[in-house]
Amino acid sequence: MRIAVVTFPGSNCDEDAVHVLRNVLGVAAFKVWHRDTQLPAGTEGVILPGGFSYGDALRSGALARFSPIMGAVRAHAEKGGPVLGICNGMQILVESGLLPGAMLQNSSRKFVCRWVGIQVETLHSPFTRFYQKGQILNVPVAHHEGCYYAPPELLAQLKAEDRIAFRYQAGDNPNGAADDIAGLLNPGRNVLGMMPHPERASEGLLGSEDGKALFVGMASAWAGRAA
C-alpha cells in the first residue's frame, strides 16, 4: 500500500500522518506537493492532513480546494480509492464538495484542543471496519472551525444512508457540530472527513492507540488497485 499525504502551504499535520503510517504501521507513505497535478504512480490512498492551508483565508479549506493536486484527488475518489481528510483536510473535502454540508466556527468561538471520546457509528467503510460498532475512541481535537453544519434534509439523508462515521459522545461535543457529527462518509463510503486527529492517537505513549485501526483499515482497503 502506498499512501500519499498532500502538503498544502500551511499544512502542519502532514509529517504526523506520514509518521504514523511509516514508523508505526510500516506502510509506505510519502508527501505530495499541492502544486503537482498527478498522484505518483502506485498511489492507493490519499490523506489531506490537518493544518491551516492558505492561512484559513476566506474560509478554512476554501482556497486549498483549488490547488492543482485536487483534480487528481477527486479522480482518485471517483474511482473508489480511499481518501481521508483530517481536520483541515475535512474542511477541504467539504469545501470541494467531496463531502456535503459546511463547516462553521466552533460554537465557543474559540480554538479548542482537548481529548474527546468519539463513538464508532458504522463499520461499513474501509476506515472503520476494524472497530466495533459503538466503540468509544479516545482522540484529540484541535480546531477553530469544526462545527459541522447540514440542513435538516441532509442530516436525515446522512442518517438514512448510514454515512455518519463518528459521533462525539453525548455531552462531549467540543464545537457544536450538528447531531454530534465528528466524521462522515461520502455516498461511495471511500471518502471520510473527520475533525478529530487519529494520527495523534496511534501510540500508547502519546495517550491512546485508538486511531491506529483506522489507518490499518485504510491501508489494506484498496491494496493492489493502484491509481
Binding site: 460554537s107 465557543s108 457544536g176
Partner: peptide, 9 residues
C-alpha cells in the same frame, strides 16, 4: 438560520 456565535456575542 445558520448559527453565528460571533454575531450573537
Amino acid at each position: 438560520g445558520v448559527l453565528d456565535p460571533a454575531g450573537e456575542a
